[in-house]
Amino acid sequence: MNALLRWLASWPLGKLHTLGALLGWVTYLLSPTYRRRLRANADLAGLTPAQRRASVAQAGCMTAEAPWLWLRDGEVSPYCRWEGAELIEQAFAQGKGLVILTPHLGCFEITARAFAERWGAAHPLTVLYRPSRKAALRELEETARGRPGMDTAPATLAGVRQMLRALKRGETIGLLPDQVPPQGMGAWAPFFGRDAYTMTLAAKLVRQTGAHWLLMWAERLPGGRGFILRVSAPQHPLPGAGEPDSEALQQACARRINEEMERLIMLNPAQYLWGYHRYKAPRDAAASPAAAGTQGPAQ
């Protein structure tokens, strides 16, 4: 498997995206479960049929470019163009930690590496990740993501402490806030009109450390022409500044972050990973407060 991935990593990016688009459609056609989930999630967001079809190919592109990102020698910076980088510089000037939130949109894997190549020497980055259950893939992920200026933190209590320490040192952390968190680390909040178990960690870290927070995603350009790294500030601050933590405040913060993620996603909905099982409930998590009959078909 590793030999195949390394061979694919040597391909030009445009060829990988062509292969990925084909694989995306093969997966969509052969997996009824994946097809139903993608269609249901896309319909919740009001995507047009054309946008939904484009998302099938884009999901395949995301998979096919992974070997290129993980195993290719050399920097990715020549393939990246930045828009909004001054917001990151301004955050650094405040002398506090920085939290960067990235949804499953575009080439989200490249965001951390591009950041580390540009700023990691002076401003190290720690990214939260969920280790693969497969040992071989887990080892590959850890090796590929362990780059100069970039560290990884597992989605465990130890990983949370690691990120907290990084922020207190004035460093940067990166999270995917639309990733379903483990039981006890989330709150139910609307996401495109349906309750989703949503990470509370990002807001807690911002509130506990006074860190600045920004939004970032990487738009995949056609024809293998690279990526645009887009950075933006949230439209509204997190609620409850100065208030003690509470379940109601956690839910309000989760709602606010979901609103920001929705805004980013709708800038380019064809590049969002609609097939992701966003609305699943972690094992032993309390059920959504919304009535089951209003939630639509199970996914």
Rank of each mutant, 00 (worst) to 15 (best):
A291H: 14
A292P: 05
P190M: 05
I257S: 01
E219P: 03
K204I: 04
Q250C: 08
E141P: 03
K134H: 15
P154E: 04
D43P: 07
P181D: 04
A136E: 15
G240I: 13
D195L: 11
Q295M: 15
G193H: 04
T102F: 00
P182M: 04
A114T: 01
L22Q: 07
P239E: 05
W213I: 06
A9T: 01
A202M: 03
A112S: 14
P181C: 00
P103Q: 07
A287W: 09
V26R: 12
D195A: 15
T111W: 09
S55A: 13
L264P: 03
A45Q: 00
W82M: 01
S31Y: 00
V127A: 15
G226E: 10
T198K: 08
L4N: 04
Q90G: 04
G84K: 07
A54Q: 13
G120R: 13
M62F: 13
L201E: 09
V160A: 13
L215I: 12
F108N: 06
R118G: 06
M266Q: 07
A211M: 09
L137G: 13
P282T: 05
A112C: 13
D195N: 02
A122Y: 02
K280V: 07
H277N: 13
L8I: 05
R161C: 01
T156S: 10
N258M: 02
G24A: 04
E171L: 05
P131Y: 10
R37G: 09
L205S: 06
Y272W: 14
E260P: 03
A153E: 02
G224F: 10
G242T: 15
A203I: 01
P190W: 11
L164A: 13
G159I: 01
L47V: 02
E139F: 03
Q58D: 10
A211Y: 03
A291E: 14
A3F: 00
L215S: 09
A50K: 10
R220V: 15
V56Q: 10
R81S: 12
Y276R: 02
P12H: 02
T209R: 08
G275A: 04
W68N: 09
A281D: 00
L175D: 01
R145N: 07
P67E: 09
L16S: 08
G120N: 12
K15Y: 00
L8V: 04
T209K: 05
A45F: 08
G97C: 03
F92T: 00
L29F: 12
S31P: 06
H104W: 08
A218P: 04
R36W: 08
A136N: 06
A287Y: 06
S246R: 09
Q183N: 15
A285D: 09
G293F: 05
A248H: 12
L267H: 11
A3T: 12
V160E: 00
G226T: 11
G149N: 05
A3M: 06
Q271A: 01
L140V: 08
Q94I: 02
R72M: 07
R72P: 10
